[in-house]
Simulated assay, not measured.
Amino acid sequence: MSDLIRSLRLFVRLSEEGSFSALGRRQNLSHTTISRAIGDLEAHFGIRLFQRTTRRQTLTRDGERLLEHAVAILDQFGLAEADLAGTVAARGLVRVGVTTALGLHYAQRLGALRDRHPGLMVEFLVADWREAAAGGGLDLWLQVGEADAPDGVALGLLPRILVAGPGYVARHGLPRTAGELSGHECLAYGYAARSEPWPIEGQDLRVSGFLRANSSEAVLRAVLGDLGIGLLPRIQVAEDLARGLVVPVLPEAAIPPLPIYVATGFRGMRMPMRARVVMDFLVENFPP
């Protein structure tokens, strides 16, 4: 590999890691090696890539321009290597924002992706609220509801179900109608700072209970602890339902599923191959 390609690759990884020390630890490289690569690029292009202070470093405007070119160059270089080698392999770090239920679902299926792309590294940011979805530095993130970007890709619909623990049902019984939920302990979570109403049988029900959380996993653990009724993604409770650890509540009730999209941080830029293969993985492995 030429020195220029190697330097470009280190430059892209440095912009991802945010600091020389973080990149050095991850790549097992000395500060001197990284500094020399960045210095070579600055000398080659006659520009300054980073604005450095005692506390942090940020890309200069020229650095941002070179980063966009470098990602495209390395992507094409990787495609050429893969084509001539007869394989398609992606390399590099891909940061993905996922909801709890889907993050757990996808994490169990990453083996095939790793085997096909051993040079790839996937980092999950797990969060159940919209404000965290488009956090800084993410390449891809799952989005609940309508896509807010023209390049968002629809993954599918995520069914939901009402469940409770057997102990709770033994003490309080089961509601017979959606309206009776107001008399029960309802454990809420949501994708906004304030819990959203439960849309059941065409009604937007304002429910309340002992616990409100921004994590669906926390709500599920509370349901398993017999604290109340939860409205959760079916894939998140499927195993517990099968084992009898939770029971369905109003199983025939009409509950609209959650539309899920995947958005990208490469708006206006060519998506690198490392991100494309992860997006394909998200699409292909979305729950049927």
Rank of each mutant, 00 (worst) to 15 (best):
V283S: 02
I229T: 01
E64Q: 02
F124M: 09
M273D: 00
G78F: 01
I5V: 06
R13D: 08
R61C: 07
L140H: 00
E180Y: 09
D240K: 13
E17D: 06
D280M: 06
R55F: 12
F45P: 10
Q236M: 15
S216H: 10
I229Y: 00
A90C: 11
I200E: 11
G228T: 07
D128M: 11
R267C: 10
L102C: 04
V163S: 02
V96G: 01
E42N: 08
L138D: 02
R26M: 13
L49M: 05
C186P: 00
H172K: 03
P259A: 14
G225S: 11
H31M: 09
G111N: 05
E123Q: 12
R270Q: 14
P256L: 02
L74E: 05
A147Q: 13
L113I: 09
A82I: 03
T53I: 00
V96S: 06
M121P: 01
R221N: 13
V88T: 07
V246K: 00
R270N: 15
P233F: 12
L245W: 09
G244K: 10
Q143W: 13
E81M: 04
G230I: 15
T87W: 06
S195L: 03
L29T: 10
Y191N: 12
V249D: 13
T53E: 04
V262K: 07
D240T: 12
L59E: 01
R116P: 00
G167M: 03
F11T: 00
V237L: 05
S35D: 10
D128Y: 06
I255C: 07
